[in-house]
């Protein structure tokens, strides 16, 4: 079984989307396997559905949304630290200490 907090948008996808925020140290179940989150993740973030090799396409909505830049394990957070756009680079700003992530 797979955790109800994980949303699979297309059967072809190699990522799930979090329906709700999941706290640090909490456990998610993916295909009967328990994965513990090393840090809190907000609603809408992506979790690997299976192991993904560097260079492999990330599939969401059944469509490629970028490529892996590092090996990604099942249950790992899939985001800008381990995937990149195949079109234009993603721009982020470093968050200031006094403004916590929501």
């Amino acid at each position: 079984m797979t955790d109800l907090r994980l949303l699979l948008l297309s059967p072809a996808d190699n990522v799930f989307v979090l329906r709700e925020a999941v706290g640090e140290g909490e456990t998610l179940v993916i295909d009967d396997r328990a994965v513990t989150l090393p840090h809190r993740l907000d609603r809408g973030h992506k979790i690997a559905r299976r192991a993904i090799a560097p260079g492999e396409k990330i599939l969401k909505y059944g469509a490629p949304i970028g490529s892996a830049t590092a090996p990604i394990a099942v249950g790992e957070h899939v985001h800008i630290h381990n995937i990149k756009s195949d079109y234009t680079a993603t721009h982020v700003i470093e968050r200031k200490q006094e403004e916590p992530a929501q």
Binding site: L18, S85, T90
Partner: peptide, 23 residues
Amino acid sequence: GYGSFAPGNADGGLSTIEEKSMG
């Protein structure tokens, strides 16, 4: 040099312009 992608998009879990596009 920049896509139509703001830092807040990434905070909200979007990683790439094509992911934002699909949505």
